[in-house]
Each structure stands twice: as structure tokens, then as C-alpha cells.
Amino acid sequence: MMSTTKPAPGKPRARPSFYFRYLVEPYLYISPAFVLIALVMLVPLVIGVSYAFQSVSLLRPFETGWVGTENFQALWTDRKFWLALKNTFWWTLGSIFFQFFLGLGLALLLNTHFYGKRLVQALVFLPWAVPTFLSALTWAWLFNPTIGPLPHWLAALGILSEPYNILGDPDLAMWGPITANVWFGIPFFAITLLAALQSIPGELYEAAEIDGATAWQSFTKITLPFLAPMIAITVMLRTIWIANFADLIFVMTGGGPANSTQILSTYIFTTAFRKLDFGYASAIAVALLVLLLIYAVILLVLRRRLVKI
């Protein structure tokens, strides 16, 4: 049959050692990713941390050099920094609270049967695909009384005394970016929680139903425990992303009015981008990083306590 063309077993067609390949192959596959991440993220990260201890300002090019903790001392007495820290807290908390609960609600709805579900799902997830700068602009316009309806509605509801732009009101301005962020972020929670919901075996609900559980009982006894790990991880990741998320605020308010919407990440960006003071920007970034690390550790410890795995 084919015996004339078939090589005898064990006559390798000139190939490097099997073992060598077996050992080396995975490294070949990950090396592009690893090199990219190391060069573009990890190395700059180390440099960035080192900047925090230097004076690196493009506007004062002759005053570069190591300055020890000078940047941090300046930070400690910087009123803007403490204000930004407080704003970061409210911005993150407000955004994550509404994103999560509205996202969970949406995921639960999408996990039921109704007519036209596919279309509805594609449409409600759409805000996530809208480029951030565009979401920011759109919401800025919606809040603008000359071309947006929102101030008029709010006034009609009696929330505002007259239709004016809340983005210009230091007391209310933060609600603008938060609204935009909630709009943009609901789909993320809905998608991940929907995926988690769909992986809960249906028999569990049937069993609960046979056991006479009410809808609320099967939600708290089956759904929530199953979602808990996913909730813990997504809430943690999202919190960190939101705390770092400067685009929306930068476009909508630029941190104003009177720094009332200045959060740490926009402060970092404006310090680096407008003032070109990289040393100080890095010091703020390091402070933010430390805060987020503390947060992550607390959450991980809590998770270990609460979720028994």
C-alpha cells in the first residue's frame, strides 16, 4: 500500500528533540505577550514609581534629580489632593453602587424568557460599546439646558429650582459624571452576572420549587450564593477601574467647577498633561496605588472569610 512512501516509525523528519520542544514550546507561545507587557507596562511602572521620588518636570528641565520624599511632603499639604481623595471616594462609591444594583437587576431580567430577548440584550448592552469620550460628550450635552432635556425635566420634577446646568454647580456637578458612568457601566455587570446566572444548573431551581421555596427564597438561597464569587471579583475589579477612570470626568467637567469633580486620576492626568510635572503626578499615582492595594487586600480577606471555598 503506502509502505514505499511511509517513513519507518521513529525516523524523525529532522526535528529537534521532542523533549526540548516540549519544554520550550509554552515559552514560545507566551513570550510575545510577556515581552510586550514587561516593556510597555512593568518597566514603565517601575520608572513611574521612581519618578515619585524625583523632580521630573518638562517645564523646569534643569531641576531634575532625586528629591527623596519631597513630592510626598508636598502632597501631604496639598489641599487639592485631599479634596480629590474625598471626591474619588464619592465618585467610586456612587458609581459602583448604582452600576452594580442596576446591572444585577438587568442580568436577572435577561435571564428570564421574553419576546425579542436577543434584540433587547444587544440594545441594552450598547452603552458599553460607545466610546468613552462620546458618552462623556453626549451626557454633557444632555445636561446642558440649551440643547438637552434633562435640566428641564429635573426642574419640572422639582429637583432643580430652575433648569440650569448641574455640571456648573459645585454641589451637584459630581452627579453628572456619575450618571454617565452608571449608564456606561451597567452592561459590564449585566454581562458578567448574566454569564454567572446562566451557569447555575436549572435543576437547582426545580428542586427548590418542589421543596416549596418561594421566589425570594430561591433567590437568596440559590442565586446569591452562586453569584457570590463572581460578585466579589467583579466588584473588586470594577472599583479599581472606576477609581482609576479619568476619561469621563476629564471630558465632562475637566475636574471643575472649583475642583468639585477633581478625582485623583484626573488630578494625575492634568498634572502630567497640563503641567508636565511628572514627578508630582507619579507621587499622586503612587498614593492612589497604595490606597487601591489596601482596598484589594481588605476585600480579599473579607472574601475569604465570607465565601467558603
Binding site: A8, P9, G10, R13, R21
Partner: peptide, 26 residues
């Protein structure tokens, strides 16, 4: 040939096969 052999010798018709990739083992 899907799993590396940790020790010993595996031969076919007297030819050592330990290091031969699956495609060449026929």
C-alpha cells in the same frame, strides 16, 4: 507520544522512541 516518558526505554523494532514526536511513531 502524547506524554513524555519520565524514565526507562521504549522501543519499536529495536529503535528507541522516547524522544520521537507522535507524528513520527506511525
Amino acid at each position: 507520544g502524547l506524554e513524555p516518558i519520565s524514565g526507562g526505554e521504549f522501543t519499536i523494532d529495536g529503535r528507541r522512541m522516547n524522544e520521537v514526536p507522535p507524528r513520527d511513531r506511525d
